Amino acid sequence: MQEFITLDGVVQGPGGADEDRDGGFALGGWAMDFDREHDLADEGGPIIAEWESRTEALLLGRRTYDIWAGAWGVWSEDAEGTTGEFTRRYNRVPKHVASTTASELAWQNSHLLGPDVPGAVARLREEPGGEIRVWGSSVLVRTLAAHDLVDEYRLMVYPIVLGTGKRLFPEGFARTALRPVETRGLASGVVVSTYRRQD
C-alpha cells in the first residue's frame, strides 16, 4: 500500500483539485503543489519509479480506478520518461477493482473483485508473482487492514497539516502492529517511510 499523506494523516485528493471533493474537500492537489514548489530536484520521482518497477498487479477502489483509467488508461504509451513507462506497465498488469456498483470496466486487463473483497484478495495473494500495489483507495485499505491483508505500508509524509479530509487511519481502523523498515528524509521535507506488518 502506497500513499501520499499529510502530517495529520490526510490522504484525500493529493493529485489534483477535482480528484476527490467528497465532504466539500477544497484542498485537492496539495501533494503536487508542494512538489512543484519544494521538490525541485525531483527526489520523489526515482523512489516512486523504483516502487513501481516491482508492480505486477494493481488493487484499486472504484474512485481511484476511475481516476487512473481516465489518466494512465488513455495516455500514450510512447510518452517520454516515467509517464510512458508507467502507462505501459499499468496497461499491461491486471487491475483488480473493489466496487459494489460497477458492472463492467473499460480499461484493458481490469477485473471486478466481486462481493467478497477480502476473500478475492486473499486468493490473489496466494498466486505466484510480484507485488500487488494499492495506491490511494482509503476505503479499500481499511477493509484490507481489517482482514490482515496489507503486508507493507509505504508512506510519503508531507510536512503539511490540512486539518480536514479523509484520513488513512480514521477512527475505527483495525489495530495493526508494524515494524519500521526504512525511513528517508528528502531535501523538500517529505519523509519516506516503509513499515511492514509484524509476523
Rank of each mutant, 00 (worst) to 15 (best):
N91W: 13
R92W: 04
R92G: 00
V93P: 00
V93Y: 00
V93S: 01
P94W: 13
K95C: 02
V97Q: 06
S99H: 02
T101P: 09
T101K: 12
T101A: 12
A102I: 05
S103Q: 14
E104M: 08
L105P: 08
L105W: 06
A106F: 09
A106C: 07
A106S: 14
W107C: 09
H111N: 05
H111D: 06
H111K: 07
G114N: 09
P115F: 10
G119S: 07
A120H: 12
A120Q: 09
V121L: 09
V121W: 06
A122V: 02
E126G: 10
E126R: 14
E126C: 08
E127D: 11
P128H: 01
P128Q: 03
P128S: 03
G129H: 04
I132R: 07
V134L: 15
V134Q: 02
V134M: 04
G136W: 02
V139F: 04
T143N: 01
A145R: 15
A146W: 12
A146P: 01
A146E: 14
D148Y: 10
D148Q: 15
L149E: 00
L149F: 05
L149I: 03
D151G: 01
D151T: 00
E152P: 00
E152W: 03
E152H: 05
E152Y: 03
E152A: 12
Y153F: 15
Y153S: 01
L155R: 00
L155Y: 00
M156G: 06
M156D: 14
V157T: 15
V157E: 14
Y158R: 02
V161M: 11
L162I: 07
L162W: 02
G163D: 10
T164I: 11
T164D: 13
G165T: 01
G165K: 00
K166M: 12
R167H: 06
L168G: 02
F169N: 09
P170T: 12
P170E: 12
E171L: 10
E171G: 09
G172D: 06
T176H: 08
A177C: 07
A177D: 13
L178E: 02
R179T: 13
R179M: 09
V181A: 11
V181L: 14
E182G: 04
T183H: 13
R184Y: 10
R184G: 03
R184N: 10
G185M: 12
